[in-house]
Amino acid sequence: MKSLGPLQYFLGLEISDTSDGYYLSQAKHVSDLLSSAGLTDSKTAPTPLDSDYRLTPMDGVPLDDPTLYHQLVGSLIYLTVTQPDIAYVIHIISRFMYAPRMTYHSAGLRIVR
């Protein structure tokens, strides 16, 4: 066994050691998520979802390729490690993993912004 030095990056988490303690960040994960979704130059949204926004199982058109939606939701779930404030809205959109539709995908992209 050998020492690789202080821990700085592990499983997408950036770890900073300061006198106050350890700080976790997922800046690279968010950057990769924004670029894969094509949102690097988009305007930010003030909230992850509007408070009156309701999703139902029959909203919108079914997605041709549900894997994009699955990847987006999975990445957002992993992001809750350092951003627990978005956990509820991710729970809302993850309820529709069995039959994703375009409106759910749009809601997921809004969370990313």
Rank of each mutant, 00 (worst) to 15 (best):
I77C: 02
G108E: 09
F96V: 03
Y78T: 08
T82R: 05
Y9W: 15
Y98P: 00
T80Q: 07
L79S: 09
S3A: 07
T47C: 14
L72P: 04
S36H: 01
T44D: 08
P84G: 01
S75C: 14
M1E: 10
P62G: 09
P62A: 10
S19V: 12
H29T: 12
I86H: 06
L7R: 07
G108F: 04
R54K: 15
S51Q: 10
S35M: 09
I90W: 00
D64V: 09
S51L: 09
A87K: 11
T80G: 00
L39V: 12
T44A: 10
M102I: 13
P66N: 04
I86W: 05
T44W: 00
D50C: 11
S106F: 02
F10P: 02
R54T: 13
Y53D: 10
Y53R: 12
L109H: 09
Y78M: 03
K43T: 15
D52R: 15
L39Q: 09
D50G: 15
K28G: 01
S36E: 04
M58K: 13
T44N: 07
I93P: 04
Q71L: 04
T40W: 01
Y53L: 15
L109C: 14
A45C: 13
Y104G: 00
Y104P: 01
Y53I: 03
Y53N: 13
M1F: 12
G74H: 03
T67M: 00
V73I: 14
L79D: 01
D65W: 03
F10D: 01
P84L: 08
S25F: 02
T103W: 00
Q26S: 11
M58C: 08
P46F: 03
I111W: 09
Q71D: 07
G60D: 08
G38D: 07
I86T: 07
